[in-house]
Computed example of a mutant assay.
Amino acid sequence: MSSHASRLGQLLLTGIPAPELDSATAARLKKLQPGGYILFSRNLKDAATLRKLCDDLRDLSEIEPIITIDQEGGRVSRLRYIGHEPPNAQQLREKGSFDLIKQHGKLTGKLLRLFGINLDLCPVLDISYDDTADNSLKGRCYGTDPQQVVDFAGTFNRAMRKEGVLSCAKHFPGYGPAECDPHEFLPIIDKTREQLDKEELLPYRALMPELDSVMVCHANYRAYDPQNERWPASLSHNIVQKLLRDQLGFDGLAMTDDLDMGAILNEVTFEQAIQEAVKAGNDMVMICHRLEMVEEARKHLEALPDPVVYDALIRLEKTKKKLSTPSPFSLERFAEVNDEIWQLRVDTLGEERAAILSVEDGKRSPVELY
């Protein structure tokens, strides 16, 4: 039995089933002690219930947990189920105002702190090569070239972190060139190392000191894994350890994207996905939806060599030292921040366009339907 066995749950980032913890779920989580929780629309009933959920997750955790969510703007704004929808990255980019992007970062940070959410799964550092492409990135990119991503995503990132919420850059090493949606299939990316270096990797390199965590995506990069044609980046030692850590020098928290996606499920077994992700250099494996698999995931982690687990735990510990405590909660405070988010939407889009909210037709990405 590994000396780290008692803390293996720390390597798990798990979804939870409902807006409130029932006694069975609470007992499971207390036993499992996951390192973090990710929230979805299924967890959102109203503002007060969300704050209580985050408080309850903290109360049952022996080590302060990461509580995270996808709150980007536009259709990928989970909190629009209980409040206003902020503008998306593309709308802010087209408006071209650093002040509005800064305001977006600031309000996002304030809103999350109010609920007790301490890490936001953004900014997106992918480059939009075609704003009309029907892939999972529609509307989510801060730039059509690397420098624009650095300028705009960097502005958002600094403003949000200043409010005490940690950030996560995604989707490393870059989904921009993907032809399909990883929720369904494994994208194959044929760009050369030189091309990836000049384009996809530039925002990561530029913003590296200001990124608390990085999410590694499920696409195959021929340039880095030529021998292994269908191997996802999230499970690739060449990409996580050699590229992100050794070459780019990132020593923060690295996590996989959701391992419940088609790009993973169609390619490898669950055991392989869990073990190879951590062996590749990730510190947390994300299981968002098949919650019955989380205990099984912990069992698979037991087979990992001690040094691999040790490195991950050290990086996790270092990241967790930066987590902020929640702000004092009141419905009045929530209403104030929510009004400011609406104002930001109007300032970005104008009254008429602000009234048109994102549609959940599910066509652009199944992530909307979770």
Rank of each mutant, 00 (worst) to 15 (best):
L50G: 07
R51C: 04
L53M: 03
L53I: 01
D56T: 06
D59M: 11
D59T: 12
L60W: 09
L60H: 09
L60I: 15
L60C: 03
I63F: 07
E64A: 15
I66H: 05
I67D: 06
I67A: 04
T68W: 01
T68Q: 10
T68S: 15
T68M: 08
I69Q: 10
Q71C: 02
R75D: 06
V76K: 03
S77H: 10
S77L: 07
L79M: 13
R80C: 11
I82C: 08
I82V: 12
I82G: 07
H84I: 00
H84E: 15
P86R: 03
P86F: 14
A89R: 02
A89F: 10
A89N: 08
Q90R: 15
L92W: 05
L92H: 04
R93T: 06
R93H: 02
E94Q: 15
K95L: 08
G96A: 11
G96R: 09
G96M: 08
G96Y: 04
G96T: 08
S97I: 12
I101N: 02
I101R: 05
Q103R: 14
H104S: 14
H104P: 01
K106Y: 12
K106P: 00
K106R: 14
L107S: 02
L107Q: 08
L107G: 01
G109W: 12
K110L: 13
K110G: 00
K110Q: 15
L111Q: 13
L112N: 11
L112S: 05
R113M: 09
F115Y: 14
F115V: 07
F115G: 06
I117K: 01
I117V: 15
D120P: 01
D120K: 02
D120H: 06
L121M: 13
P123W: 06
P123C: 07
V124W: 00
V124D: 01
V124T: 12
V124N: 07
D126Q: 08
D126P: 05
D126I: 00
D126E: 11
S128H: 04
Y129E: 02
D130E: 12
A133W: 13
D134V: 02
N135R: 09
N135W: 00
N135S: 13
S136M: 07
L137W: 00
L137P: 03
L137R: 05
G139K: 11
